[in-house]
């Protein structure tokens, strides 16, 4: 069974951590994954650096640029993951823009992800309309193609996207790009409730989640949280232990 499916049956609130592969050198990726796994995260999204990350804010873009300077590529990340011998117990996802995938070859990408033990892929600039470009290949490897929904997604689109959703749904909490924020707007709660009411798979809230106050506000309306910029920032500043309370705020307290 795909690890993402096992997740769903466990019933706990999920904490999905995003890291930028190769920020600080590709050899750090393994430590980071091991660290997060031990710290109790539910799944890890491994970001692939891209020269033109239009869906990302300054934190992740800067991390991507640092990784690019180190010569990190999609291929190298997948090779690295394939070489791991430690026990990976949680689902690993790859988050990449479409162009590196096209250049690598979609079919080869899916096959290599399969070999690297990837459970899901997220391609932020591949909308539902064009997902056929990738879907048949990831299907072949039993890898889930995660879809995003946002506050601007219309109701009919939402239905279309959710009907074919697999793995989990990535529900974007902000009108904007990735990055830490102070406030979460009130309509986000209603939006999450709507998505969760219709989704056949778990709904995880992402973009801008960086504090336990965000988690408290949305906890009852989602199945989990995706935290990116705050983790990328913490790894970069060598203060990753400061993220642990946030992880525990999600995974421990009042779990359903």
């Amino acid at each position: 069974m795909n690890r993402l499916e096992q997740l769903k049956s466990s019933g706990k609130k999920a904490f999905v951590a995003y890291i930028m592969a190769g920020d600080g050198g590709l050899d750090r990726l393994k430590e980071q994954v091991q660290y997060l796994q031990k710290a109790g995260v539910t799944a890890i999204e491994i970001g692939i650096p891209f020269s033109d990350p239009v869906a990302d804010g300054p934190t992740i873009e800067a991390a991507g640029n640092r990784a690019l300077k180190q010569g990190v590529t999609l291929q190298k990340v997948l090779e690295e993951m394939k070489s791991w011998t430690f026990q990976v117990e949680i689902p690993l996802l790859v988050m990449t823009y479409l162009n590196p995938v096209l250049k690598f070859g979609v079919e080869r990408f899916a096959a290599e992800c399969g070999k690297a033990g990837v459970s899901g892929v997220i391609i932020p600039d591949l909308p539902h309309e064009h997902k056929q470009l990738v879907q048949p290949y990831v299907d072949k490897e039993n890898i889930k193609l995660i879809q995003l929904v946002t506050l601007t997604t219309t109701d009919t689109r939402l239905e279309d996207i959710l009907r074919e959703a697999e793995g989990f749904v990535y529900a974007v909490t902000v009108k904007g790009i990735t990055g830490s924020r102070d406030e979460m707007s009130e309509d986000v709660k209603a939006f999450m409730r709507k998505v969760r009411g219709k989704s056949p798979v778990p709904v995880y809230a992402g973009f801008g989640i960086s504090k336990s106050s965000h988690v408290d506000m949305l906890r009852d309306d989602v199945d989990g949280f995706i935290v990116g910029s705050a983790i990328v920032e913490a790894f970069n500043a060598d203060k990753i232990q400061e993220i642990e309370p946030l992880i525990h705020a999600v995974t421990n307290a009042h779990s359903v």
Binding site: E129, L148, T153, V172
Partner: peptide
């Protein structure tokens, strides 16, 4: 095509 983030699709 329309290869943009979901936020822009609408």
């Amino acid at each position: 095509g329309q290869f943009v983030p979901e936020t822009l699709m609408k």
